[in-house]
Design a protein around this nucleic acid. Structure first.
Lengths: 338, 338
DNA sequence: TTGAAAGCGGTACCAA
DNA sequence: TTGGTACCGCTTTCAA
């Protein structure tokens, strides 16, 4: 077993005190330039590495921020994480991540773990069915900042960064209507998830505004998987849909491809729209109309906001509800007027 | 400031010793059922949370595993991470992640951070140009297990889990040749990255085996971005390529789409193949022939192997070089015989 | 500018 | 089965 080098070992070699070594290593101005250089040289040559546990234990902070998301495996989430990491890493923070698997109990258990690890702050996109309260109380009590993003808890005024899902859905549905669609279907996810619920309501509002009837069976609630898109296609073909707005791009893509296979012409017979502006939306044929939802940017924004709060540069609660801009991207899957 | 509850607080309330409290909380069999229950009840009611720093400091371990990858933002990587997290989370380990941004210096700096955080083990996919040695010495010295995956350092017998890139590339190129392609281009990444180098060499071997000539300009070295695919398409059109094998799916997709725009018929005029079996490969038109490279599975495998090593169930070094199986998935983008 | 010493909150050895 | 106590390695107050 390789014995770890501690500041005491360095102190002993140099016949000085551990306090001075600690100060030197932390670039504390109280030590003289000369001794500092001596200490740093010795530390390097001895292969000294700071023990963050000891430091954290003493300082009551971790230099770590936690991230909890429903699922890690999506292109969008990978963009978000990349954005977060780039900011936290530059600021010298660690990033510890976990996924709730869309399960509230797991989310609570992850919250406990994050708490025990004394994260300095937390970024959360909630699981379906989470109220944003249960399990979060410990953080509120200890004033550990929690910033929600993408999926914020419904009806709570807690710091969050989201996009205007309702409006985005309204705009994209309106666009499908303008292109002549009259029997539009909306493929969505569990309505306990804020973003899906909001998109649904934007969808309905657009129908209403255009004077189009709305029937419950126009709402296809699924898990938004690739398979779900294919299943939805069959339903839509039966019910003679002429427009489809799916709550994510991959589901829109598989649905559209299935309808193509069945002989439907896109956009002539059926107009399509997705959500997210994923890689896939740009590369299918025809290219998919969608909402540009910049994950990398959002990751950078939320990480920066949290770190600013931690360094007292700004307060998360001064303007808790941040809405990022998203935009309608019109592509060939819908762009057709008879 | 909310004062943290410690085991001493609990001990005092119950007029017992901190040792007993510690034992009870850790379900140590030395405490009586009765006192244990009493302690746990009290701990809950007082809102006690274990301080992992103190425990880690004392136990010289962190219950944390580290992950360093070149880039977080890809569908493949999101699958890998999801797989890793599902295993580490179940085992009660934390996962701390960082990206080297394909930069060796950043990789080294990330390694230091991981080390200072006393990760119990490390999972690494190396940056372009990394030799897998510089910066890793501290881990070898302290016998902290490092398991490489996907991109392992070239020419080193270190524990790694990879796929047989050379052979996969050989098979997919051979397939293109069988389908009648004679002037095949390979879009690849920096050749300092093991996986790209290996795929290139499999590509060349297949040409050789079929008696086809090889010219350096058949190798298009890029950053494998979406844009790179489009640029490559222009080159391939000029040089009258009739087959393309790209080292990832997204680049293959954009390249294929660009050629389609230019009026080429796929697969009649140009046969296409990618790598990874990303979401996108299944949903573009025509669907893309590719190599199925199961990221989620790989994530689970590497996490499990590392944890098994940590719990002494098996030794990483007993069979260091693990090759996972990958397979050729033939789809419409290449499946055409004149 | 430097040193001594007291914690931070656990764990585990030794004794009872 | 329980208690006393000595650490784990670092930071910081107070004194010199």
């Amino acid at each position: 077993m390789h014995k770890e080098v501690t500041i005491y070992d360095i102190a002993e070699k140099l016949s000085i005190s551990a306090s001075t070594v600690s100060r030197a290593l932390n670039a504390n101005s109280l030590v003289s330039k000369k001794t500092q250089q001596k200490i740093i040289a010795m530390a390097t040559s001895m292969g000294y590495r700071s023990n963050t546990f000891a430091a954290n234990l003493r300082m009551q902070r971790s230099n770590t921020i936690g991230l909890i998301v429903p699922r890690l495996n999506s292109y969008f989430m990978s963009e978000v994480i990349s954005g977060i990491e780039s900011v936290t890493n530059d600021a010298g923070y660690n990033l510890i991540i976990s996924q709730s698997m869309e399960n509230v109990d797991k989310e609570i258990s992850n919250l406990k773990t994050m708490f025990n690890n004394r994260v300095d702050g937390l970024l959360v996109s909630v699981a379906a069915g989470s109220n944003g309260l249960t399990g979060f109380d410990i953080f509120r009590d200890r004033k550990i900042p929690v910033l929600f993003f993408d999926r914020a808890p419904h009806g709570l005024t807690v710091p969050s960064v989201t996009i205007d899902n309702e409006n985005a859905a309204f705009l994209i549905t309106q666009h499908l209507i303008e292109m002549g669609a009259k029997n539009i279907f909306h493929i969505t996810g569990h309505q306990s998830v804020s973003v899906y619920k909001e998109r649904t309501s934007g969808f309905k509002r657009a129908l209403l505004a255009a004077g189009l009837p709305f029937n419950e069976n126009q709402l296809i609630v699924t898990d938004l998987s690739e398979k779900a898109g294919i299943a939805a296609a069959k339903l839509i073909a039966e019910l003679k849909g002429d427009g489809v707005f799916a709550a994510n791009d991959s589901c829109a893509a598989t649905c559209m491809n299935e309808l193509k296979l069945q002989g439907f012409k896109i956009p002539q017979d059926v107009k399509f729209a997705g959500f997210n502006n994923d890689l896939i939306s740009r590369n299918i044929d025809p290219a998919l109309t969608t909402i540009n939802y910049p994950g990398f940017e959002m990751g950078k924004v939320i990480a920066a906001k949290l770190l600013d709060h931690l360094s007292h540069k700004s307060d998360l609660h001064s303007s808790p509800l941040i809405t990022m801009k998203s935009e309608l991207v019109i592509r060939a899957s819908s762009n057709y007027k008879p």
